[in-house]
Write a protein that binds this DNA or RNA. Structure first.
Length: 861
RNA sequence: GCCCCGAUAGUUCAGCGGUUAGAACUUUGGACUUAAAAUCCAGCGACGAAGGUUCGAUUCCUUCUCGGGGCACCA
């Protein structure tokens, strides 16, 4: 064994070993229980960033831990490789997106492999590969046939100069990012997934996802936005139809003093014909035009439309107002307004001097009058004719009966969730397998003609839709009637690609079918790991797809991911200089020298290149714009993958954001070197078998107790809490105690052997290269990965003497060491006899003695 | 505005109804060295504020302050 730790040599050796012996290649023919551990697949942007390193290290620690615990562990990897950045890179550097993407994948795969991940690379795929999207297109046609996919018009951002549709992020201050032209809204036909059909199922499924963070489930619940209420008809004065509103507070129906409609509502258009002066208001607010945040804070404004509708119960005339606070795309775009019991209506009525009619009073007592704010709690009805005296539930039923009987409404549940538009007028995506035929309409591409291949040698120029300019691509014949037809030239949203990839890993080599029975061996994913930024869209879409796959009979489970871990961001210091115009130039932390005070606080920073001051900008998420990204490759070169992994896992718990610091990395490196040295010294003295029996001193027994306590703690930290930082800290504590002792005799050496073997096994999920190397030294001929995880020895945990603290009135006054077997009375007597304690209870009346076995005696005087 | 999470050493994180509140980094001193680095040893250093519950509160509860996140006219 070498005296000095050499990360390059060891990591290369261990990685070669894993690769050559196919250590992490798995199949289903295994008696062990399965464990599917998955980290979100990355977009191949060019090179790895620290967020990736963190994500994949967390996944790897969990995968390796389950491996050692006797599971058949699958950890696959792939690439979310369709998407806009490839197109942008293409016309910036004149390389086809396909070539750019595959080059990036090759480089990033090499980077990832240098991290030493326990991945089954035989299952790797890229979503842009025809062998993957072929099945996606097939799935599309199945869902289309089942009516889960339909076509309707949708609104897109249209750049009139580039003649192209822009993604939201390509619209900057309302202008096209390349042309600078003012972007307009345009209606074009698009395909939609009917995710709303699954709203209830997606909502209810959350209740069973015990392994998901509450925060994520809450976000999904809010996003689905279920509300139970009533649809109510307010008849037009001419009795030709009625205005339909949705409310969750039908109990306040008798308090309606006006109704409000969105500026985009058809009734507003009708009112415009009678009252042309409404035009300016309607135009201003019709399309919103402004951002959602502005919309939420903008002042409530409205105009009277000149129209009236009839109250469904009283037939009174109710004025119709056009108001900017009514949303066109929720419910029916119209609301009944009850100023007395709704904050927004109260505000609007106050501004416009509209009447306020109170119909709900608190369950006990009265309202303070005059009202200064709406009373929005549920209560008891009054001023409500036959409904007087009812509570919310009774009123709901009574109104439902009344409205249903008179054909004036019905109970209704609304969801905030909208259908998912997946058409993208882009080149680098999965082609939508539809053929438009003049005779037959929209026809699915038959299975035998799949995949619809995306040409890979194209370089988009940023204008128009590339496929729509390729006659070779879109000219085709109708599969039904054989006539000339036009192929769909839109591609799918890349969220589609990532909505089912986890299932495909289980049978990635099957080119005949999308999925086979192997998916039911591996799915659902036991542990899914990824960034919190995917809490809503990706995770909801994947759940939706899983339910679709389930209904097609392709998977047996009902949810894709049993446990979810959402990891925090990686932050780094930022430094900048500001010029006279206020423009900031950002400097990379690697190029800056930070001056600290004697406590280690940052006081100033200078640029290494010129020695002049730079401003300290605080910690920010690593990004190109702030130039604070740290290159993982440099770290791996200099310190090794193990040090990088250890630092990532030690510095912060997985869910919290992690602040990058070079000092922390030095610390991780130091710990690894220390571990190496401890094993080296032990080995110099001669390796032996682990301790099983023998005489130990009290100190040695304590060390052994600590070892087995640590084993328990770490097992719990990794398996249950997923808190790797605390696991590492407790090993540090253990090693601190260990290195204070010396191990000379055979028994002592055996104890040392036991500690070191256990430490190496426990650390191996986190720093696998060095641990496997050290294990080979500690146990020649054996392999760490064949070992079982360490189990705490109950006997070692059992101590026969305990230290008991003695308090008088809750204050510490002494402590004694007693045999565990002593009775309460014996311990209390010993406590009272303690000389220091005696001083405090002298001449006092003992009121009470609190006794906590094995811990303390508290004498209350 | 509403909801959630957090506040412990200079920093990043642990912890706990009860002993002397743990790690690591930073920092100070010492050993080693011609010197430095590396290494080892030792040290400095903390429970946001106020109330309440309790024999005893850093821990539980309430309020406040500060920070982070989510939602945001969803009728």
């Amino acid at each position: 064994m070498q005296e000095n730790y050499n990360h390059k040599e060891i990591e290369k050796k261990q990685q070669a070993k894993w690769h050559n012996s196919k250590t992490f290649v798995v199949n289903e023919n295994n008696p062990k229980p399965k464990y599917y551990c998955l980290s979100m697949l990355p977009y191949p942007s060019g090179k790895l960033h620290m967020g990736h390193v963190r994500n994949y290290t967390i996944g790897d620690v969990i995968a390796r831990f389950y491996h050692l615990n006797g599971y058949n562990v699958l950890q696959p990897f792939g690439w979310d490789s369709f998407g806009l950045p490839a197109e942008n890179a293409a016309f910036a550097s004149n390389v086809p997106p396909a070539k750019w993407t595959y080059q990036n994948i090759d480089y990033m795969r090499w980077q990832l492999q240098s991290l030493g991940l326990a991945v089954d690379w035989s299952r790797e795929f890229a979503t842009c590969s025809p062998t993957y999207y072929k099945h996606q297109q097939w799935l599309f046609t199945k869902l289309y046939e089942k009516g889960i996919i339909y076509r309707k018009n949708g609104i897109v951002n249209w750049d009139p100069v580039d003649q192209t549709v822009l993604a939201n992020e390509q619209v900057i201050d309302g202008k096209g990012w390349r042309s600078g032209a003012v972007v307009i809204k345009k209606e074009i036909p698009m395909y939609y997934f009917k995710i709303t059909d699954y709203a209830e199922e997606l909502l209810q499924g959350l209740d069973y996802l015990d392994g998901w963070p509450e925060q994520v489930k809450t976000m999904q619940r809010n996003w689905i936005g279920k509300s139970v209420g009533m649809e109510i008809h307010f008849p037009y004065t001419d009795n030709l139809g009625s205005l339909i509103v949705f409310t969750t507070r039908v109990d306040t129906l008798m308090g309606v003093t006006y109704v409000a409609i969105a500026p985009g509502h058809e009734l507003a258009t009708a009112a415009l014909k009678i009252k042309p002066e409404l035009a300016s208001f309607i135009e201003e607010y019709k399309n919103g035009g402004t951002s959602e945040a502005q919309l939420a804070t903008q002042e409530k404004k409205g105009v009277f439309s000149g129209l009236y509708v009839k109250h469904p119960v009283t037939n009174e005339l109710i004025p119709v107002w056009i108001a900017n606070y009514v949303l066109m795309n929720y419910g029916s775009g119209a609301v009944m307004a009850v100023p007395a019991h709704d904050e927004r209506d109260f505000e609007f009525a106050s501004l416009n001097n509209l009447p306020i009619k109170i119909v709900i009073r608190p369950n006990n007592g009265k309202l303070d009058l005059p009202m200064t704010a709406a009373y929005t709690e549920r209560g008891i009805l009054f001023n409500s004719r036959q409904f007087d005296g009812m509570d919310f539930d009774r009123a709901f039923n009574a109104f439902e009966e009344f409205l249903t009987k008179n054909n004036l409404g019905r109970a209704k549940t609304n969801y905030r969730l909208r259908d998912w538009g997946i058409s993208r007028q882009r080149y680098w995506g999965c082609p939508i397998p539809i053929i438009h035929c003049e005779n037959c309409g929209d026809v699915c591409v038959p299975e035998t003609q799949l995949p619809v291949i995306l040409p890979e040698n194209l370089i988009p120029d940023g204008s128009g839709s590339p496929l729509a300019k390729l006659a070779d691509f879109y000219n085709t014949t109708c599969p039904q009637c054989g006539a000339g037809a036009r192929r769909e030239t839109d591609t799918m949203d890349t969220f589609v690609d990532s909505s089912w990839y986890y299932a495909r890993y289980t049978c990635a080599d099957n080119d005949k079918q999308i999925l086979d029975d192997r998916v039911n061996y591996w799915a659902p994913v036991n542990q899914y790991i990824g960034g919190i930024e995917h809490a809503i869209l990706h995770l909801l879409y994947a759940r939706f797809f899983h339910k679709c796959l389930h209904n097609l009979g392709l998977v047996k489970s009902s949810e894709p991911f049993t446990n979810l871990l959402t990891q925090g961001m990686v932050l780094a210091d930022t430094f900048y200089r500001e010029d006279a115009l206020g423009k900031k130039t950002w400097f990379n932390p690697a190029d800056v020298h930070v001056v600290t005070d004697e406590k280690g606080r940052q006081i100033s920073a200078v640029l290494k290149a010129d020695g002049l001051n730079v401003q300290i900008g605080g910690q920010e998420k690593m990004s190109k714009s702030k130039n604070n990204g740290i290159d993982p490759q440099m770290i791996i070169e200099q310190y090794g993958a193990d040090a990088a992994r250890l630092f990532m896992m030690f510095t912060a718990p997985p869910e919290l954001s992690l602040e990058w610091s070079d000092n922390g990395l030095e610390g991780a490196n130091r710990f690894i070197k220390r571990l190496w040295k401890l094993v080296y010294e032990h080995k110099q003295a001669g390796i032996v078998k682990c301790f099983t029996s023998g005489e130990l001193t009290i100190e040695q027994k304590k060390l052994r107790t600590l070892l087995h306590q640590t084993i328990q703690k770490i097992t719990h930290d990794i398996a249950v809490r997923r808190q790797f930082n605390t696991a590492i800290a407790s090993i540090m504590e253990l090693l601190n105690s260990y290195s204070k002792m010396s191990f000379i005799s055979e028994t002592e050496k055996a104890l040392s052997q036991e500690v070191l073997e256990a430490v190496v096994i426990m650390l191996s999920p986190i720093i696998p290269h060095i641990c496997e190397e050290l294990y080979e030294e500690l146990a020649p001929g054996e392999k760490l990965l064949d070992r079982q995880w360490v189990v705490a020895d109950i006997a070692a945990l059992d101590v026969d003497e305990v230290e008991v603290i003695i308090q008088v009135n809750g204050k510490l006054r002494g402590k004694i060491t007693v045999a565990k077997s002593l009775s309460r009375e014996q311990v209390e007597d010993m406590a009272k006899q303690n000389s220091n304690v005696a001083k405090f209870i002298e001449n006092q009346i003992i009121k009470k003695i609190i006794f906590v076995p094995g811990k303390l005696v508290n004498i209350v005087v």
